[in-house]
């Protein structure tokens, strides 16, 4: 479990990092290192250079701009959990991040790292998809924005090009009166979920007008469930129907933590919890 040899480069600023990234296809961005370094130690990849973006201060800012909350890529999970504005404007993030690993890992692990890595069992990518956050990427040709719904392409596959760096994530604050939900099922606190759900409901006069569901830990990426949402707009929650429809929405993939059947079951249970909590 010693990583293969690599060079280390501490980027001075964003342009510097992009330059190096562009000049070397085998280079890789090092953020908090909580996923990358274990992967290297297990010799799952052997990059030439680790470009450490940890000293680029502009990536460590949390800003409110108009109706957006903007998280710099290098904001650590802990920094976000302790930020007053985040806790006022998007309190659900705190609840969600409290389930991400353990304090030591949250002190190092970054927002950008989690979104860019795109672990299908991770909480943040699912949340980004739920609110269709805007993901800002910078490359040699400047900046571009990809919506979270377009960002996740497959298992650990994202829209980031090899010469790009994720710089920030823009979350709409005012969710149009949307009520948000987060819950997950893990065997131990801080583990990646066997199945998790972030969801939102918009109501008018106690009537559900819009329902969104994004599951994590269930497939190869954050999984939306449009058919289930549609069903829930018209019908009362019913466990066995929901479980069936979810199976149409999502190709539940088993992993070491649980079978696909288990994931479908837990997903249906989570939907039930959400409907109870938000209605």
């Amino acid at each position: 479990m010693k990583s293969p040899a690599f060079s280390y480069y501490q980027a001075k600023d964003l342009a510097d990092a992009i330059n190096i990234k562009k000049s070397d296809d085998d280079s890789i961005i090092l953020a908090g290192g909580q996923s990358l370094l274990p992967a290297l130690n297990m010799r799952l990849s052997s990059p030439s250079v680790l470009i450490d973006i940890g000293s680029i201060n502009e990536l460590k800012k949390i800003k409110v701009e108009g109706s957006y909350l903007i998280m710099g890529a290098m904001c650590s999970h802990s920094q976000i959990m302790n930020n007053k504005e985040v806790n006022e404007k998007l309190p659900i993030l705190n609840k969600l991040l409290a389930q991400v690993a353990h304090p030591a890992i949250r002190n190092k692990g970054t927002h950008g790292g989690s979104i860019a890595y795109g672990d299908p069992a991770a909480e943040l990518p699912a949340f980004a998809v739920l609110v269709n956050a805007e993901i800002i990427l910078s490359g040699p040709n400047g900046e571009r924005t990809v919506s979270a719904k377009e960002f996740y392409k497959g298992l650990f596959e994202t829209a980031i090009n090899s010469d790009e760096i994720l710089t920030s994530v823009k979350y709409p604050i005012n969710q149009n009166g949307m009520k948000l939900f987060f819950d997950e099922v893990t065997r131990r606190h801080g583990d990646y979920a066997m199945a998790g759900l972030v969801g939102s409901i918009k109501q008018n006069n106690k009537i559900n007008e819009e329902i969104n569901l994004v599951f994590f830990g269930t497939g190869d990426r954050p999984n939306e469930a449009p058919k289930t949402c549609e069903y829930l707009l018209k019908n009362e929650y019913n466990y066995s129907d929901i479980k069936d429809i979810l199976k149409n929405d999502i190709d539940f993939a088993s992993d070491v933590s649980s079978s696909s059947d288990m994931k479908a079951h837990l997903s249906a249970i989570l939907v039930g919890r959400m409907m109870k909590e938000l209605n």
């Binding site: 131990r188 606190h189 070491v256 933590s257």
Partner: peptide, 16 residues
């Protein structure tokens, strides 16, 4: 052996 690492082989932890 499919879970020979600390992430997938679950040991009891303090929280539980």
């Amino acid at each position: 052996l499919t879970n020979g690492n600390m992430a997938d082989y679950l040991v009891p932890m303090a929280y539980e």
